[in-house]
Amino acid sequence: MNLRRRYLRDRLMQLLVYLGTLVVLIPLFFILYYVFVQGIGALNWEFFTRPPAPPGEEGGGMLPAIVGSLIVDTLALFIAAVFGIAAGILLAEYPDHPLNPVLRLVSDVMAGLPAILMGLVAFVLVVQPMGHFSGLSGSVALALIMVPIIVRTTEGVLKLIPWEITEAGLALGLPRWRVILSLVLPAARGGIVTGLMLALARGAGEAAPLIFTAFGNPFLTFNPLEPMDTLPLKLYVYAISPYEDWHRQAWGAALLLAAAIMVTNYLARRAMRS
């Protein structure tokens, strides 16, 4: 009986799996550790309330980037939600519609495209016609990233809503559109919100498509038709700059960003459960 050899192999593979897991977890743990330890020192009052200092000077903060992130991301989520939820409704509530196979393929493929390409598209379609960079063009780029996520989650959630709800509504004499709007969508609200949050978390961390759309702007602005800064963008610019104080602030931005995304993900999970 070669049972001993079989057990040896069992233990050996178990050891390898444990080692492989450690190889993954240790560096990833160190990333979180560094982001927290280096970032926490940079998060002070000035960081949240001041515009950046001129290059090379100490101090200054991230106010324009924080405001910019909020505006660009919210706008992007709004654009993506309108199209994404509608597409999800079409896929789930009109399953025989001829557009659906195309729509499903398109949203699956879009989900796998590199984010930077969305930036190129927004540059050509928004920045070039407008003649200048803008927060809005950044929102368009991010919306292209968010849409497939929203389509998928909306479709999935709506399909989980029991058909009885629709039937009950139709039996009351409500037209189909009232049933969808007043019965089905509210029943699916938790799941749809989850999808929106996941999309937001995904888009909020992107810098690549914003480099040549939102572009960045050291001055505080609330106008999305002007160039705007966002946290990931500022983080990138500061990280590759030669100034130590900017490096410090980049860690702060990283912590703020990571925390925001963690919270969003956490809330998304909670919304999914309820």
Partner: peptide
């Protein structure tokens, strides 16, 4: 949960850690 969290961490954060650590 940790794995999901790290999958959601933005690329720029990995880049920052890469440069300085």
């Amino acid at each position: 949960y940790l794995i999901d969290l790290l999958a959601a961490l933005p690329s720029v954060v990995y880049g920052l850690w890469g440069i300085f650590v």
